[in-house]
Design a protein around this nucleic acid. Structure first.
Lengths: 160, 160
DNA sequence: CCATATAGTCAAGATACTTGACGACTTTGC
DNA sequence: GCAAAGTCGTCAAGTATCTTGACTATATGG
């Protein structure tokens, strides 16, 4: 079963899933590194996933739970961390005594601005590496894929 | 700071990083679901990441650690789990008393075969959804991106 | 043989989630 | 009004997937 190995290593996978995963990981690593360099050391992948669902104008925590499609306890814990870092703040909802409004602090808005700038820089680097035509084709394919996917079975996670 | 929200939800992001992440997550979810349906309930994303680095002919654990670019303790724990599931087996290396050879069991090889089949099915579904041309352009862009990336700064993780 | 490096393991801790239970508040039906 | 039922956020505990640190066993070069 085991013969002459480590003489010749087997090739790495080369299917869509692996390529997408690699590209996604690379992008995230580049983004996170740039964010840390920009002084946002609190930035992590999990927090980014949540922040992407918090509009600049704020959002009710319950709505955030629905949008982010993770358990409300996970959202709770992530918000606890972000609040402790001073990135977001939770204020009572004046229209519903049960609710909380999640909004950005000055520090959070600064981070968003830096994030937008970094995204553009990374995108620019991609265009330089693979050319505008390939890049446009990439975005077109990804967008189309996403649209056709949403049209089919909708995979909203059933939150508790 | 907080005005009329939940009347109009802000649009979701639309940059390369987010698209890649979405597409990658969707692929993984589809693959994992199909694997579970095929009877491989032990299949998880983390284990998949490691299995992708184990050639069918087996590999020395030290070489696997280097290839997978995660800590040797993480590899250890993942292998413990996979071994407990009966997917892989660790045999002593006859050429080095310190080493272990990680190889697939019959069950593991069966899973690999099913995995390959499922990958082709998913790929076929993608082509149906976005067309052969867009799909080829997607793969071309991802491959080029990866190549140009490797040519630049090489990001091998420093394993302990 | 001994010093040093390498291969694998054991233990403990961090992060990012999960389910379950609960108290505070609002809405609904009568 | 007001009690039943639903919603909102929280507290507590557990799981999966990593990490760093410390250790044992084996190999190798002089």
């Amino acid at each position: 079963m085991v013969k002459d190995l480590d003489e010749k290593t087997e090739a790495l996978p080369d299917h869509v899933g692996w390529r997408l995963w690699q590209a996604s990981r690379a992008w995230q690593a580049e983004f996170a590194a740039a964010m840390r360099t920009a002084g946002h050391g609190w930035f992590t992948e999990a927090r980014a996933g949540l922040l992407g669902h918090i509009p600049r104008g704020g959002i009710r925590q319950a709505a955030l739970i629905e949008r982010s499609a993770i358990s409300k306890q996970a959202v709770q814990q992530l918000l606890d961390g972000l609040e402790a870092e001073g990135v977001v703040q939770r204020l009572p909802d004046p229209r519903d005594g049960r609710g909380k409004l999640v909004g950005y602090t000055r520090k959070g808005l600064d981070a968003l601005r830096d994030g937008d700038r970094i995204k553009l820089q990374i995108e620019h680097g991609y265009v330089e590496r693979i050319g505008q035509q390939r890049f446009s084709a990439l975005m077109d394919a990804l967008r189309t894929l996403h649209t056709e996917q949403a049209d089919a079975g909708d995979e909203e996670a059933g939150v508790q």
